[in-house]
Structures are given as structure tokens and as C-alpha cells.
Design a protein around this nucleic acid. Sequence first.
DNA 1: CTCCCTTTATCAAGGGTTTCTTCATTTCTA
DNA 2: TAGAAATGAAGAAACCCTTGATAAAGGGAG
Lengths: 256, 256
Amino acid sequence: MENNTKKTAVLETGDRILRMLECFTIEKPEWGVTELSEHLGLYKSVVHRMLVTLEHRGFITQNPQSQKYMLGIKLFELGVVVGNQMNLRTVAKPVMEELCENTKETVMLMIVDGLEGICVEKVESTQSVRYTSPLGKRVPLHAGATTKILLAYLPEDKIDKIISKGLPKFTDYTVSDPDELRQQLQTIRKQGYCISSNDFSLGGMGIAVPIMDHSGEVVAGLSISGLEFRMNDIADSLLRQCQAAADSISKRLGAR
Amino acid sequence: MENNTKKTAVLETGDRILRMLECFTIEKPEWGVTELSEHLGLYKSVVHRMLVTLEHRGFITQNPQSQKYMLGIKLFELGVVVGNQMNLRTVAKPVMEELCENTKETVMLMIVDGLEGICVEKVESTQSVRYTSPLGKRVPLHAGATTKILLAYLPEDKIDKIISKGLPKFTDYTVSDPDELRQQLQTIRKQGYCISSNDFSLGGMGIAVPIMDHSGEVVAGLSISGLEFRMNDIADSLLRQCQAAADSISKRLGAR
DNA sequence: CTCCCTTTATCAAGGGTTTCTTCATTTCTA
DNA sequence: TAGAAATGAAGAAACCCTTGATAAAGGGAG
């Protein structure tokens, strides 16, 4: 995600280090020097020197057995600082816990960052078979109820940008036709919620509503997610509970 | 915390950026350009350029109203990656939840990083009056049960180093005499647990035990923390439950 | 089980590139 | 409106990349 409103140029060396940090993900948390070199298109000695710099202050640590590198405890600390400063998360958590208790399904809170959605909080169902998604994971906005509700309230130019980047299919039910997606988004805005099944994962179902801040702007999506066969017949009831929860959170954020 | 086993020099620009990131803490999550400049002893234009570099990729974000800078969502994502790769946390969490449920007090998991302790997981009591400490916060090792249990099992040279850095008092009961501290640590090792009151916060009480990994090494401290007047009379029972929980976690980590 | 070869990680030095230092300009707040 | 903070630009100074050497580790073959 790029913020290019400022004229000041970025520091090349700094930007390169940040780019490398972005390689460490939930899917691939461990990297070797050669792997990073190839992935980033940088000399191995450059990569190594960056890793030593990060390791020096605990931002990265090396697994002595495998010699591979992984993110260090300092990033855990900084991550907690970010989590703490999200008023939205603090306010939402107890409401989400209650909603999960009442519905027995996973409750998720997502925001938009750039052209993607990120799960910033979740309360997982305690049922053995449950829907879940990793906290902090980035997902596309056109598949899944929680992200489609966010997409619906984005500015038109941003929706255009997302569509122009392409709409990959995750299942046979994932919408990939731009006109059909726009139609869906219009319906979502009209009814003020999104219910979708099977479009991100087969057998999955999500019921999502928007959360507003004091200025009436949509700042997050709240959803109940689970298995379709469990949720389909009680969708109305789940929707009402989700709406009540979102209203509660919105009010605490200063919405009218 | 410095890892200086490698001969490769760190990148000055990179190190400077990391040093700046370390300024953003739970206590002070927002900084202005001039504040950072003075705190770090760097020119304002250098600080500004570093901030723009971090902002460019979402590692830092600027509050438009106050013009101050705070950590960005990218660090939240990386923080989650770190949290996920901590096998200890994943294994411990359900056990901690049960322990909290059974004891009604806050349960905490701490590790050592450098010469300090860090809380890497906690399950807070649901009682309105409860003991708590921020997740991810660094604390000294000589005050409080959870950290003293960790200190007790550190190598002698590391204990010496910590003592030589000084033992600040948090209450009148905080141990600050090196000989007395060593005595306490010996007792803790002997009995295999630590119970302390009032030495980190007045009225607070903690019961802590060590968690071992597959090699028998102490990798974390597990504790029940609460108010002294609630815990004092049932300390034996709480200690047994804490020991059982720690044993369970240790076994799942491969300890015998 | 040991040795050899291949791959990866680590390290060093000079030329080229990037960033700091200084100060100007813009923006914001009281 | 004035002062303080944020933002931005250009030449000198410092840093880093590029290249290749060395060390370490792992795997396969005998």
C-alpha cells in the first residue's frame, strides 16, 4: 500500500529492509539468506547485512538448527502496541465475545488496508468444527461476506481500482464478473448487510454488517462466520444479533 | 538486546530506523518529528525522511489531526506472525484459560528477552477488580513472582549482569540488596516455585512456576496473579493448580 | 561411519550511490 | 499574526552495493 502524498523521497536502504520484513508471513515465517536474495532480487551479502542489522536489535532471530531467519520478539512488542492503539478492537472485543457465546459461531472484525481486508480481531467458536481465518491475514475484498461489506462502502474510484486488479476465484461461486460484483455491492448497500455462502470457501457462510465511527464512516466489518448447513435456517436471527452487536460497537465509537 | 556474535557490521541507516521504531511503546505510542529528533539525537529532516519511508509501506501512520506519528498496521501483521510462531503460546493458551476459569484470577505467561521479562500471553480474570499487566510490556526480572522464577533459572553470569545494572524499588518491599536477592533465588530453585506479595505492586500477589521445554530448559514462567487478600489463604491450592498447568504445558512441549 | 563435494552462509574491500547537514519554505496552532 | 513544528531541497560526507573470497553445513557415496 503506497502513500505518495508526500514529496520527500524514501530512504532506499530503509525501504529495502521493510520490503524484506514483508516477506515474513503466516504462510512462510522462515527464510534462508539465499531464498530472500532470490525472492527480493538482491545480492546475498546485502540480504545478510540487513538480517544482521535486524537481528542486532531483536527484530529478527536466527534458528540455529536450520540457519533460517524468522521475525523476532521486538516485532511482537510493536504489534501489541498497534493492537492496543486500535480503539476499535478494544471496544469491539467484549461485544464480540458475547456474540460468539450467543451464536456459537466464529465472530470476526475486519478493516480495509489499501485494497485488501485484514482481520484485526476474532473470537473463535468453541465447536470442534468451526470456521476460522488467521488473525492479521490479508484477504481480497471481493470474496466473503466480511470483506464484501467493506468493499460496498469504499469510494467508487477505489472499487474501480480493485476490480481492475482482477477478481480471482476461490470457488466456483466466487464472483469474478465486474458488473455482477457491482450489482451485488449495490444490493449490499441497499439492505445494509451482506450474507454470502461458498464464495470464499465451500461450505462456509458469512453474515456481515458495517461498523461506523463518529462521522458515520464505515471503519470495519463485523461478521458471524460458520458452516452453511448450521447457519442457513437461522440466518434471520443471526443477522439481527449481528446488527445489534454492530450497533452497540458503533455507538461506543461515537456513531449516532 | 544485542547479538554481537557476527562480524558483519550493521547498516547504519537501517539500525537508525529500528532505533526509532523502538521509541513507540505502550506508554508512548504517538510521537512528533521534533520529539523524535530530540529523543534520538538526530536531525529533524533525517527523522522525517525515515518516517516517510516507514509510512510509505504502512509501517507507520500519521494522525492527520495531531500530525503525530504512530505505528501502522504492517507491524500488527508482523506481530501476529511472531505470536503464531511461538509454539509456547499456542500450547499454553487453552491451559491458561482453564486455569483462569478455575482460579478466577489472572494467568500470565512470561519469557526472558535479554535482561528483561516480557508477557507473551495472558488470560485476565473476569472479576471487576483484577490484577493485570500489558501484553508485550517489558519488565525487570527482580520484582514480581513471574519474573523472579525466570531469573532464578538464568545462568549465573546473566544474573550478575542484571544485578550490576541495579535493582530499582517499585514498593518498599522490592528486594534491592544483591545478597538478599541471590538468597531468594536459591530458595526459589530449591522449592521449584515462587510466591511473592507486594514487591512489584502493593496489594498484589503472584504464584509462579517454571515451564520447561524438551531439553529441560526453563523457557517461560507461568503465574497466577491477583490481590493478596483474595489469594493468601488459598495459596497452597492455587500453587498446586499452577504446577499442574505448567506440567501440562511442559509435557506438550516435550519435557519428560 | 567417514570423506568429499556442493550449496549456503558469512565476510571484506573499493568504487559508486545514498544520505546527512544545513537551511529554506510551508503548515499549523495558539 | 507570530512562533513552533513539519516538510523539503541541494552539495558534501558517509554509507552501501558489487564482486568475490572464505567458512560452515549438509548430503551423498564409498
